[in-house]
Simulated assay, not measured.
Amino acid sequence: MANNKSALKRIRIAKRNRLQNKFYKSSVRTLIKMFFKRLEEYKISGDPADKVKAQIILSSLYSLIDKGSKKKIFHKNTAARKKSQLALKLKMC
């Protein structure tokens, strides 16, 4: 256990940051799965409404990735790579 105030504070801060990192990373993974599900539905049905739904999910993904990058949860190159790969997947459909 920690022996002084600063060590106790660092434990609290580490816990807070871990929860924040977990939120952003898991949310991005969940949205990516939803995005790919919508793309599959679009490939099968060919309905433009499914592609619009995928674009809406992609815009919210961009927002979440950018916020995570701003808070140093994702490295800037990792964020750029994720966004680029997702945009390419949408374009290829």
Rank of each mutant, 00 (worst) to 15 (best):
A7R: 11
A7H: 09
L8Y: 14
L8M: 15
K9T: 12
K9W: 13
K9L: 14
R10H: 13
R10V: 01
A14D: 14
R16F: 10
R16D: 12
N17A: 05
R18P: 00
R18L: 07
Q20D: 03
K22W: 06
K22S: 06
K22N: 04
F23V: 00
F23R: 05
F23M: 04
S26R: 08
S27G: 11
V28F: 04
V28M: 05
T30S: 12
L31W: 10
L31S: 09
I32N: 07
K33S: 10
M34G: 09
F35W: 03
F36L: 06
F36I: 02
K37Y: 13
R38C: 08
E40V: 06
E40G: 03
E40C: 02
E41C: 10
Y42A: 14
Y42S: 13
I44N: 08
S45Q: 05
A49K: 15
K53Q: 15
A54C: 08
A54V: 01
A54P: 07
Q55V: 15
Q55S: 15
Q55N: 14
S59H: 10
L61A: 06
Y62R: 11
Y62Q: 12
S63R: 11
L64P: 02
L64W: 02
I65E: 03
D66Y: 09
D66A: 07
K70W: 06
K70E: 06
K70C: 05
K71P: 00
K71F: 05
I73S: 06
I73G: 05
F74P: 03
H75L: 02
H75D: 13
K76G: 01
T78R: 04
A79S: 02
A80F: 07
